[in-house]
Design a protein around this nucleic acid. Structure first.
Lengths: 160, 160
DNA sequence: GATGAAACACCCAGGAG
DNA sequence: CTCCTGGGTGTTTCATC
């Protein structure tokens, strides 16, 4: 069966069913033990362990993290900031220029009127104002800010 | 000093320095052992263990997850979908109506022209088309879609 | 918050299908 | 090549101080 696949060249768009199951469980519960994981996917502990390490090495699993309640950690204000370059001839190294600004949680290059969308978290409106100033200064962009009023859900695990 | 705080009523906006350190480490490495964690924050293993459990119970840590490479798991197309209600008199239960659509990773209620911003992941343009149809049908909204071309970074840990 | 001890999980071998 | 078996090592978790 299946002499195909498994030659490690380039990102394949599909995963083995067993790997899919593993990845789905770890996306839902990133801290579950290998013992639990083995039971859930119906494999031995070491087989699961082996597969998880392979998934990490292949870059399928990029990292693990705790999800924090933004309010509890003192960052109650979330916003999307859309970026439009001021000088259209400038080199497109905005992510690099903004990388050091730690309030930026995510940076997406997008198709549309604007070039980038940033997801940011700050402590207060004043902190947002200061952040916008630093972003404009660092990247020479104009910004459009959309304040998040509430977050019904966020970072849900994909279906797979 | 600080005889303040610690009475468990409502979300306090600030955390003890030790809890902040714990939470910062777990945000960066959600799967690190309690032993490692204890060393990094300069506490005994059981003290750390106790604090982590408290942080989980208080809802400061909401969950743990593995971050997946979207392409590797067969969801190479990411997009933002902005929602505008068609009937302004309809009850605002959009998150509820959309909750069952698993392609929606995050749902934000926002201030601005549109009411909600969704972050979605799908396998293909055809899947996106189908998803948009299902969103419009389920929530009675008009949609505006911004396709993500690339993701320089995503889900970075906050500075704290 | 620290210590110590028992239960448990991890993870390296090596071997079987 | 992938999966399972074993066992030493390290981790979790609970009682106690």
């Amino acid at each position: 069966m299946s002499t195909v696949s498994a030659s490690g060249s380039g990102p394949q768009s599909s995963l083995e069913p067993l790997d899919t199951a593993i990845v789905r469980e770890l996306a839902k519960d990133g801290r579950c033990s290998f013992t639990d994981l083995a039971e859930r996917v119906g494999l031995s502990v070491s087989a699961v362990h082996q597969r998880v390490r392979r998934l990490e090495q292949r870059g399928v699993i990029t990292r693990y993290s705790a999800h924090l309640d933004a309010e509890s950690v003192g960052l109650p204000l979330t916003a999307f900031i859309s970026l439009t370059p001021i000088d259209p001839a400038a080199p497109d190294d905005y992510p690099q220029r903004l990388k050091g600004i730690h309030e930026i949680e995510s940076c997406y290059s997008v198709a549309g009127e604007e070039s980038y969308i940033l997801l940011v978290r700050v402590a207060s409106p004043a902190a947002l104002e200061d952040l916008l100033r630093r972003i404009r200064e660092a990247a020479k962009v104009s910004t459009r800010t959309t304040v998040v009023l509430s977050t019904p859900y966020e970072g849900r695990a994909p279906a797979l």
